[in-house]
Amino acid sequence: MQQFSSREKYMVSNTLNCWPIMLQGHSVLIDLQNETSVAGIIDIADGHMTCELIHAVFIDRNGGQHPFDHFMVRNRMIRQIHIPAHLDAEQELRKAMERGVLRRTRVETKKGKRTFKQKRADIRHKETLQMISQQKKEQKET
């Protein structure tokens, strides 16, 4: 597993910055802020969402395709990351939490209690998973 700074750990654990890390090794399409896109396999991603793609194809505004062996996307340039259709978002989040991508080391206080931030982060993760499962149920019903 990669070594993250404390700020990156916080961002990965509490925001959607975890997705590029979880999608390492998968082929993705990333829409950029300047109306262009890049498709490729995420090789390296950090806690700030900076991604390095291999076997990438840059798609310009006119639809022209330009192949690259390596392509780096800065976090502020990302508009949207398309999650591959064959992946189940809820299941991927659960796996990531189990294997440690989203796992936070528990900071024990003198009494062994968790901090308010830790409790709130756990609640937000559970709410996100519930929202995803509700959306799945709604899609199955329609």
Rank of each mutant, 00 (worst) to 15 (best):
S133V: 13
Q135P: 01
H48K: 11
K119N: 14
W19F: 13
L32A: 02
V101Q: 04
T115S: 15
V12S: 00
D122T: 11
C51M: 15
F71C: 02
R124I: 09
A89S: 09
M97A: 14
R74C: 07
V107N: 05
L93I: 15
T142Q: 13
V57T: 15
V12Q: 00
A96W: 06
L23I: 09
F116R: 12
H82K: 09
C18R: 10
L32N: 01
I59Y: 11
E108I: 10
I41Y: 08
H26C: 10
R103F: 09
P84H: 08
M49V: 09
Q3G: 07
D60M: 04
C18V: 12
M72T: 15
H70D: 08
H70F: 13
H125V: 10
A89T: 08
I41G: 03
A56G: 05
G25T: 06
E138T: 10
C51L: 12
R103S: 12
F68L: 02
I21R: 01
L29N: 07
A85K: 11
G63Q: 08
Q3Y: 11
I42K: 00
H66S: 09
M131D: 13
E98D: 14
H82D: 08
T105D: 13
F4N: 01
T142Y: 09
P67K: 06
E35V: 04
F4E: 00
I41H: 04
A39L: 04
L16K: 08
A121Y: 08
I41M: 08
I44P: 01
R7H: 11
N14M: 04
A56Q: 07
I42D: 00
N62V: 07
F68G: 02
A85F: 08
H125W: 12
L93M: 15
E92W: 02
H82L: 05
P67N: 05
S37E: 14
R76P: 02
S27A: 06
M131L: 11
E90V: 04
S6H: 08
L29K: 15
I44A: 02
D60C: 03
G100Y: 12
F116V: 12
D46G: 06
F4G: 00
R124H: 12
S5K: 03
K9N: 13
I59V: 15
K117F: 11
E127K: 12
L23W: 01
I123C: 04
R94H: 10
N14C: 09
D43H: 07
E90K: 05
S27C: 03
I123H: 11
K110A: 10
F58W: 14
T128P: 01
G112S: 08
F68K: 04
L53T: 01
N75S: 15
Q134P: 01
